[in-house]
């Protein structure tokens, strides 16, 4: 990116510390690091509660991204990396989180994280990440019962949204709301492949479609694919949405109307760190606690 030009794709990277959760002498300190294809997340927990959280863009190397996001999570805490009793790494594909004591699948971590964020009533989780969509069913303890992943085509994922944000010059965080600004829903676009997103969107614009209409057509196509996945695993209430697109109202509201089912509301994550985008890292930090306790026995 050229300096000075606005980076429309850029979502907010952030770091939050909750000093009231500060560790004491006997506290169990654990961490979860989730290296996704687009964003990296780190969560530090004290006795199973979020003390610090950081989210940033994933760089070209996963070990470096893991190091950076963990360093950021440690900032403004009284902790050093060596104070953490157990670290679990997770993420897209075969990630490499060098400081992790163990690595778990992102599916298990997402389910555990969603269970922490919304509580035991969560039965179905739709995770929309940077390059894949996952539909997960879990029990009241956040244990995975079944899951389905679609990473064949990066349909309706973070990466596709970034491409469109850049082309349409609309900040990524506003795209969902903008897409709802249409009089009636257009036909969904036929292909939601990232590779063609740009070309197809440009073609529609040339035909006189407004930006709003183009976005609506995209998000509708994405929502349809997501609903197909959910129906395959059997969508049961309550339904939670995690991952980078969980804050995209354009997608969420369409999924809700297609399914005829409400999704769980966005928690007040700025107050306690329960950010659905970080569900994987939250779950990883919880598993870290369980694994640490198991190792001590």
């Amino acid at each position: 990116m050229i300096e000075g030009s606005q980076q429309y794709w850029r979502w907010r990277e952030y770091h939050l510390v909750f000093p009231e959760k500060r560790p004491k002498q006997s506290s169990i300190i654990t961490a979860g690091v989730d290296i996704g294809s687009v964003s990296s997340k780190a969560v530090i927990m004290v006795n199973g509660e979020i003390y610090s959280i950081s989210i940033m863009r994933t760089g070209s190397s996963s070990p470096d991204s893991a190091k950076k996001v963990m360093e950021w999570a440690l900032k403004d805490t009284e902790l050093k990396l060596s104070d953490i009793h157990y670290i679990v790494g997770t993420g897209y594909g075969r990630v490499n989180v060098p400081m992790a004591h163990n690595t778990l699948t992102e599916i298990a971590c997402h389910a555990k994280g969603a269970n922490y964020i919304w509580g035991p009533t969560v039965r179905t989780i739709l995770d929309v990440g940077g390059q894949d969509i996952k539909a997960i069913k879990c029990d009241e303890k956040g244990k995975v019962l079944s899951f389905l992943m679609n990473d064949k085509c990066a349909a309706g994922t973070g990466r596709g949204m970034e491409v469109l944000a850049d082309l349409l010059k609309i900040p990524i965080e506003e795209m969902g709301a903008v897409s709802l600004n249409v009089d009636e829903e257009p036909e969904p676009v036929s292909c939601t492949c990232v590779a063609f997103a740009r070309t197809e969107a440009m073609w529609l614009l040339r035909r006189g479609w407004t930006k709003e209409k183009v976005l609506a057509a995209y998000m509708r196509a994405m929502a349809i694919r997501m609903c197909n996945l959910l129906q395959r695993v059997g969508c049961e209430s309550e339904l939670a949405v995690t991952g980078g697109q969980s804050k995209n109202v354009g997608i969420i509201s369409r999924v809700e109307s297609l399914l005829g089912m409400k999704t769980l509301p966005m928690p007040e994550w700025e107050k306690d760190g329960r950010d659905p985008m970080a569900a994987g890292a939250i779950g990883a930090a919880l598993f870290a606690k369980a694994l640490h306790e198991k190792a001590k026995k």
């Binding site: 019962l145 085509c153 694919r225």
Partner: peptide
């Protein structure tokens, strides 16, 4: 309920579903 951990390997594309 019996716990089951079912993994669907595969995908759905324009031509159908394969898992």
């Amino acid at each position: 309920r019996r716990t089951c951990i079912i993994t669907y390997y595969g995908y759905m594309d324009g031509s159908g579903e394969y898992y």
